[in-house]
Nucleic acid binder design. Structure first.
Length: 442
RNA sequence: GUGGCCGUAGCUCAGUUAGGCAGAGCACCUGGUUGUGGUCCAGGAUGUCGCGGGUUCAAAUCCCGUCGGCCACCCCA
């Protein structure tokens, strides 16, 4: 019988314990931050009718969609993000849920695109959205959630860049380029990568814009300075069309709200070059970058989409939210050395020393767990040195050693593996003493 | 999807130029130390050289295909 080579598909990966522990920790942190703001958890199926997903993220996502016929001949597809399923979900259940409806949703999504570092065909997104309100307070809250999330994950240097689509639309009104919106947005999105020259060349080539038009667009995209300076310079550039006014007011209000929420000025930036490719954004848009790893791209982005759910319901369902790229974030954390190598190890290691007393060791381990400790009992009565070595390599923090003498005297040796110091502890106090020692060591 | 670079031990890689015994460091295992890890010393095990085919007396090395990874474009988390 020939052996089947074990392998995974392009862009699909296995997760080893260290990575998986980091992933669970990121998701746990994100959940707890969202709950602090009153977001509730939901889930939706991986498969949807193709008609639900097609055409929602633009041509590109249609092309990348995993799509096939199911066992009943239905035309089905795998979700490529969590926002479009949310729109369907909201249209279907909004009467029961009421608005505003705030939810978070974590799960894998699939895009059949070419792979690269931090870019896979199956990856996990963590989304949070507020549905059913046009209030800019929801926009403010979204940015505050992003901020609290990265702060809670332990990041120091990160910046949330935000913008409003109406500013760009206002400028397009002024320049008579309304029909070229998609092309212009796409060119602008490349600003940090190809610079003003690249953008102007692209604009001329793809949209056939005049020199004067290009200059106006670049004047907007190239705005630099403090947030106040940028805001002050905007009116002259984007003009006074209704859309421009809306965008301007929105940026100012969101900035004020974010400041009032106590977000440090250096972590939020009004950045008019943020355009976002996805077709469905209509108002606020934002991306989050890590100061130490700008090359990895945005690790959390999103925006306001006031028209999306209208595809599935006549009821008006505006929304705003964000999407955290869990896999990309973990790739970043691994590169930045933020992943704790021993996160998967139990705090307390119990050596199995006297095989005849297996039952006593099992009982002891159970008692310690009942006392709130994470405990691993070694499964074989190997040489003590080998067991200690295992405990050390695994990253356990305390080793509990009980041999014949200790059983006789009802004591245990508790060893701090980091320092090598050993303490004799009566078995009756073992749980409490272990907790104390872990507490003291931090 | 298009173009380029790459794939050798668990990991990081050398060896490919110009075909000639499959290597290093780290990790791992055993012993020194039959009740104590990290250091040290001695010894040991470890390979479909990604996979398939071709050229050749001989292929990790050259050719073709394929799978996978990375980079650019594209798009995006």
């Amino acid at each position: 019988m020939s052996i089947i080579p074990p392998r995974t598909l392009k862009g699909f990966r296995d997760y080893l314990p260290q990575t998986m522990a980091a992933r669970e920790q990121v998701i746990e942190t994100a959940r707890s931050v969202c709950r602090n703001f009153g977001f509730a958890p939901i889930d939706t199926p991986v498969l949807e009718y193709s008609e639900i997903l097609l055409g929602k993220g633009g041509e590109e996502s249609d092309r990348q969609m995993y799509r096939f016929e199911d066992h009943g001949g239905r035309d089905v597809a795998m979700r490529f993000d969590l926002t479009v399923p949310l729109a369907r979900f909201a249209a279907q259940h909004v009467r029961r849920l009421g608005t505003p409806f705030k939810r978070y949703h974590v799960g894998p999504v699939w895009r059949g695109e070419n792979t690269q570092r931090g870019r896979y065909r199956e990856f996990v997104q963590f989304d949070f959205d507020t549905i059913g309100t046009e209030s800019l307070l929801a926009d403010v809250e979204t940015l505050v959630v992003v901020h609290d999330l990265f702060a809670a994950l332990g990041f120091e240097g990160f910046t949330i860049h935000f913008n409003n689509r109406s500013l760009l639309n206002g400028l397009l009104d002024k320049l008579g380029l309304e029909d070229q919106a998609a092309v212009v947005l796409r060119a602008l999105d490349k600003m940090p990568k190809i610079g003003p020259h690249g953008v102007s060349e692209e604009l001329r080539r793809a949209a056939g814009t005049s020199d004067q038009q290009v200059n106006s667009i670049l004047a907007l995209a190239g705005l630099t300075g403090t947030n106040d300076e940028v805001v002050a310079a905007l009116p002259a550039i984007v003009g006074s069309s209704p859309r421009a006014q809306t965008g301007l007011a929105a940026v100012e209000e969101v900035l004020a709200g974010v400041r009032a929420s106590g977000i440090p000025e250096e972590r939020i930036r009004v950045d008019v070059s943020i355009a976002r490719g996805l077709a469905y954004y209509t108002g606020t848009v934002y991306e989050t970058f890590l100061a130490d790893l700008p090359g990895i791209g945005s690790v959390c982005s999103g925006g306001r989409y006031d028209d999306l759910a209208s595809l599935y319901t006549k009821q008006r369902l505006p929304g705003i939210g964000g999407s955290l790229g869990v896999d990309r974030l973990i790739a970043a954390m691994e590169e930045l050395g933020m992943v704790d190598e021993s996160a998967a190890a139990a705090d307390v290691f119990v050596a199995l020393f006297v095989p005849e007393r297996v039952g006593d060791y099992l009982g002891l381990a159970a008692e310690l767990r009942a006392a709130g400790l994470s405990v691993e009992l070694y499964p074989e009565a190997r040489k003590l040195g080998a067991q200690m070595k295992y405990a050390d390599r695994r990253g356990h923090r305390l080793a509990v050693i009980i041999g014949e003498d200790e059983w006789d005297s009802q004591t245990a040796q508790v060893k701090m593996l980091a320092t090598g110091r050993s303490t004799e502890v009566p078995l009756s106090q073992l749980g409490r003493r272990c907790s104390d020692m872990l507490e003291e060591a931090g």
